[in-house]
Amino acid sequence: MSIKVENLCHVYRKGLPEESKALDEVSFDVSDNQILGVIGHTGSGKSTLLQHLNGLLKADSGEISIDGMRLYAPEVSMLDIRKKVGLVFQYPEYQLFEETVAKDIAFGPKNLGLTEEEIDSRVREAMSLVNLDYDTFSEKSPFDLSGGQKRRVAIAGVLAMKPKILILDEPTAGLDPKTHKDILNMVVDIHRKEKNITVFVSHNMNDIANISDNIIVMDKGKCVLQGKPEEVFSHSDFIKSIGLDLPDVTQLMKDLGIEREDGKAIFSLDEAENMIFNMIGGSK
């Protein structure tokens, strides 16, 4: 599995006075079994970018290939793309509509034309991946659940399609700290179990730094920086100049004046602890 994006451009409301260039020559690659973190200020084009990856929006120019399959080739059907690329929207709980949780999760697999048994087993599997007990929740109405539970159901609805690429647009937005952590751990767990590519947007720099293999930084529709977290966050002044922030640990180490020899950013708590202990000559 791989994603290759080349020179992607998208203009909203073309021809109107308020036309806006939401994506401007964006290029990046994601290789197999990686987590890609996407960060950027509000309105920088993150959601627009994600919607291109499963063909919901069509670029004005540029190319996207998923696993060598060119998205804009005439012979490619949308269902093929949606089968491979699952997209969980920002606030996905607002898309629930069925009478029961199980039926709602089954909506995607049904659209794929699977058999009843296959659908049932996928619903069970997806619910266990998002830590919802099948017996307790499957017959409940999705509208009677708490916000965090609704979000799990919505994510399960996409997981049940078994996408090889899972895209999550701010999956932790507006959740309490515990649910936030749960959802984040769940995303990493699913990634490990399913060995998928995970693309994920968040405004929380700590989460991004800790779980991503690679990061792309968006600003005003352009992809202005990409690389491993320790590289991206070593450009601290630039990151701040585009309205973003450093992970807490990185900021702390910077304030303390402790640096790695290679100049890269420090964001893992363990590494920071060790370096501080080294410096003051103590241990845990």
């Binding site: 919901l56 949606r82 699952g86 929207f89």
Partner: peptide, 28 residues
């Protein structure tokens, strides 16, 4: 878009099928 991402198809099928496809939009 969210329902399309889950494989919903609003463009094809006969009238009855299309009317049924509206439910996932209208309820939310």
């Amino acid at each position: 878009k969210a329902q399309q991402a889950r494989g919903a198809d609003f463009e094809s099928g006969n009238i009855l099928r299309r009317a049924k496809q509206l439910i996932p939009i209208l309820v939310p």
